[in-house]
């Protein structure tokens, strides 16, 4: 177990294993997203209240899931990096943060696009959207602090600390925003908590969520490989890797 961790921590080993894993992840992501979106957009029944506009959940919900999961992954990587000094964890974190921010932005945009036909307005201070907005701020903070330091190593540690602090705060923020929301808008229309979504509706949603996670894995593996080459470019094994090629 311990040996496995240390092996995983070696950039060289990770570079190899990621190369083998990432095509599978990409294929899986592509297949799931393709099936999910065609099913969800073309074949799933329209909502009896919202008509076809509900179909944006097939993007909105997976993006929102990913937005929160990636922040969790960011904090976990930060912990691994700070405690065991495993550099791979930080490289992955550096690559994950922009994707997480992008997913948060997608969730916000799709949420407000959805809000137009549902609420009649582009923006509503709905609990979910509000905590999503705060999550975007947290992502921006983590990304900005990494770049603020002259030494990349310091920036990496600072981003790790901030991600860990943020992750402790996320549930607190979420619950306080929800509480605030009920205080100000009793009985407002909530988007995803709906009574008994029929199977034909949530099945494609589930597929889309899984597809997004597969995409996340594929994206992180591929980008981390690039980051390994960038950071370890001066190491002998990287040089040998490219000299072997004809």
């Amino acid at each position: 177990m311990w040996a496995f961790f240390h092996k995983l921590g070696s950039p060289r080993w990770f570079y190899g294993i990621a190369a083998r894993l990432s095509p599978w992840c990409w294929a899986l992501a592509l297949a799931l997203i393709l099936v999910g979106s065609v099913w969800g957009l073309a074949f799933a029944p329209a909502d009896y209240q919202q008509g076809n506009s509900f179909r944006i959940i097939y993007v909105h919900v997976p993006a929102a899931f990913l937005a929160q999961s990636i922040f969790l992954a960011l904090a976990a990587s930060g912990f691994v990096f700070m405690v065991w000094k495993i550099k791979i964890a930080d490289m992955a974190a550096a690559m994950m943060a922009p994707l997480g921010a992008a997913m948060t932005a997608i969730a916000l945009l799709s949420g407000s696009v959805w809000g137009k036909p549902t609420w009649g307005t582009w923006w509503q201070w709905d609990a979910r959207l509000t905590s999503m907005l705060i999550l975007l701020f947290l992502y921006l903070g983590v990304m900005l602090i990494r770049r603020a330091f002259a030494r990349p190593q310091s920036g990496a540690k600072a981003a790790s600390v901030l991600a860990m602090v943020g992750v402790i705060n996320i549930p607190i923020i979420k619950y306080s925003v929800e509480w605030w929301n009920t205080l100000h808008q009793p009985a407002s229309f909530t988007i995803t908590e709906r009574p008994a979504m029929p199977v034909e509706m949530w099945m494609p949603l589930l597929i889309m969520v899984l597809g997004f996670y597969a995409f996340f894995a594929a994206f992180t593996l591929t980008r981390t490989r690039t980051e390994i080459l960038r950071r370890e470019g001066h190491k002998r094994w990287v040089k040998e890797l490219f000299e072997e090629r004809p």
């Binding site: 705060i134 701020f137 921006l140 903070g141 602090i145 943020g166 607190i172 923020i173 306080s176």
Partner: peptide, 10 residues
């Protein structure tokens, strides 16, 4: 300010 303001919201 950017780092800590989101944390002050609760």
């Amino acid at each position: 300010s950017l780092l800590v303001l989101p944390l002050f919201m609760p």
